[in-house]
């Protein structure tokens, strides 16, 4: 009976360790959000495995639930990754932050002065060029490493299957 409840708590404890380690890493140990997120996830994952194994040896939980708890932990870790990422790159959040920092709101022109497509694309293109996903040669852009292109194609496929359209402007 108690083992059942411990099984429920294990992925939550591991996820809390993930968040705590990520915050400690980004504040005190390393630069770079992505590295801190991966470090937090890895430490949390090892903690989950140790928790599962230890409660199994104590005889108060069943090893068979490890698959369920790995899925729960990975899903929560995935959500946390995107939560942090949203705060950094999501356009809606960036516009909300600009409006929050302004006194009495902003007109459309004022929003676009602070945050516009040119700035956003320059920033993102630079990131893509830096990590080799895109290559710029004599003023021409080419696809580089295939990882992000593969992710883009997967998202496009999901869009077509679920929404029936390739782009939000296809309506």
């Amino acid at each position: 009976m108690i083992g059942d409840y411990i099984n429920v708590i294990n992925p939550i404890v591991a996820f809390s360790i993930n968040v705590a380690v990520q915050l400690l890493c980004i504040r005190f140990v390393m630069k770079g959000l992505l590295r801190s997120l991966f470090s937090g996830f890895a430490v949390g994952f090892v903690s989950l495995l140790l928790l599962q194994v230890s409660v199994t040896f104590l005889g108060i939980a069943f090893f068979s639930n490890i698959m369920v708890n790995i899925i729960i932990y990975s899903s929560l870790g995935y959500c946390y990754f995107h939560f942090v990422n949203l705060g950094e790159t999501a356009r809606r959040i960036r516009i909300l932050r600009e409006l929050y920092d302004s006194k009495g709101g902003l007109t459309l022109d004022e929003i676009l002065e602070r945050y516009n497509a040119k700035r956003m694309v320059d920033l993102r293109l630079q990131r893509l060029l830096n990590n080799g996903q895109v290559v710029l040669k004599d003023g021409i852009l080419f696809n580089g490493k295939p990882v992000l292109l593969l992710i883009s194609k997967t998202i496009l496929l999901m869009k077509v299957i679920i929404l029936g359209q390739k782009s939000e402007f296809d309506k």
Partner: peptide, 23 residues
């Protein structure tokens, strides 16, 4: 899926341009 991500739009635009690349 709901909104077109800028990075996705960038990757798709370059891919759609084919082997000659995108100016």
């Amino acid at each position: 899926l709901e909104a077109d991500s800028p990075s996705l739009v960038i990757m798709t635009a370059i891919n759609d341009a084919g082997p000659d690349g995108l100016d």
